[in-house]
Structures are given as C-alpha cells and as structure tokens.
Amino acid sequence: MKIIFKIILQYYLKYLTKFILFIYKPTIIAIAGSANKTFVRYEITRILNKNGIKTRTNNKSFNTEIGLPLAVLNLQSGYNSYKKWLSVIVKALFNIFSSNYPRVLVLELGISNPGDMKYLLSIIKPDISIITDITQRYLESFNDMDIMAGEYELLIKKTKLSGLIILNNDNARINKLLIPNLKNIITFGFKDGSDWRITNAVKTEYKQLININFSDHNLKVTKQYILERFGQHHVYSLTIGLIINHYLNENNKAQLLPKKIH
C-alpha cells in the first residue's frame, strides 16, 4: 500500500512540476555534487535576490525524486503521514496559480543510485548546472566511480545548449568528465588554469580574506572579498555566486531570465 501510494505521489508531483515549469518558465540553476550543495544554493539565492532577481530555493535539502518536485512547487514534505501528504497534494494544485512565482529556481540534485540523475532530468531542464565536487560519498550504491561520474556527465549533456556549466577545477574526478563540444563552461578553483582562480584564502581570527582572479571584458581582474564564514567550502560558494552574477550581467539578464507571465 505504502509503495503504491509513493509511486502515485511521485508521478503526480512529477507531472504537476513539469506543468508549472511549462507555465512559468523560470530559469533553473541546478547544483549537483557530493558536498557543499546547500551552501552553494544559499549563496546563489542570496546574491541573486540582492541584485533584485526574484529567486527561490528550498529551505531543506529537497533533492530527490519526491524532494525536487516539492522544491519546485514550494511545498513541505508530508514525511510519513498520509494526512499530511493529502494536504500536500491539494496545496500542489493551488500553487499552480501562484501570482508570485520566482524568476529563478535554485535546485539541488541529489543522486544516491544509478539512474537518479536521469529521473531528475526528466522533470527539469537546467539553464545553468554546477558540479561542486565528486567524491566517494554516496558511492555505496554505484559499482564504481565511473558509473557515478556518468550521472554528472548526463547533467552536463542535458543542460541547455544556450546555458552554462560551472565546474570545480580542483576536483580531479570532475576534470576527467566527458564534456560534449559546444557547451559553455566556466571553471573555478585554486588550481592554475581555472577561469575564476582563487589565488589566496587567508583565515584570520574573525574572517577569511579571499583574492579571486577572473576575466572581465577580456581584462584580467583581481578582486578581494571578505567572508565572515570559515572553511574552503564557503570560498567555493562565494566564487560560484560571483560567477553566476557576472554571467547574468554579461549576458543581459533581462533577456536570459524569462519574464513573468502575470
């Protein structure tokens, strides 16, 4: 009974999600990787909202076959309660008629089994995809790293041709991913050769000081940033947020981001 309910729910949410995305056509930023997805999600949302682009992400890490539709539909999980799920089902219908749908959705894609990415990409088609990291975390359901890496290769392949792919240049496994031609790719990291190269990240007692090199209209620029958070993952998150902001500005965000239909 529980399994049947879950399957019905899964497909109900999937098709409702596809419908709502068809109506509102938000720009979709997808974040995948073994670690750091949530921090990146928050940073992108913070930067875009700060720049006046109505952006939404989910408070929780809803990133699976049920969780991803919940994030798009802006709904809470019913967890293990049929009663709560019934309420979710009804609310999902009402959310189609939201007058305040965001222009950008920042979504996490979580994979823990082979084929997970294929299913998630049958629901959404990202405009921008980010791969934060590939490590052995969540490897247990995959026979080897190549199969797991294949999930990320699929994400790259399925990202819109007119869109953008952002990759962590410091991760050896990401550098081995097979990337089709014609894809627009930006890399970041501490390593030489990164498009957005973090040249310095110094921790003081209260903050981190970060220098980032990047190209702006073919000019090499170095900028310093101050982070009041600690850890390399925040340096990466900041850099990804800056890349997206820069990219949207460079590419005339008014054109890139679909207009609201209301």
């Binding site: 958070r229 600690f230 850890g231 390399q232 993952h233 925040h234």
Partner: peptide
C-alpha cells in the same frame, strides 16, 4: 549558523 555560530564543518 541558524544560531549565529559560524564554524567550518570540515575542520571545526
């Protein structure tokens, strides 16, 4: 972080 305490999960 929700309680205004900022610590690095990898090292702290």
């Amino acid at each position: 972080a929700e309680d205004n305490m900022y610590y690095d999960w990898q090292n702290e």
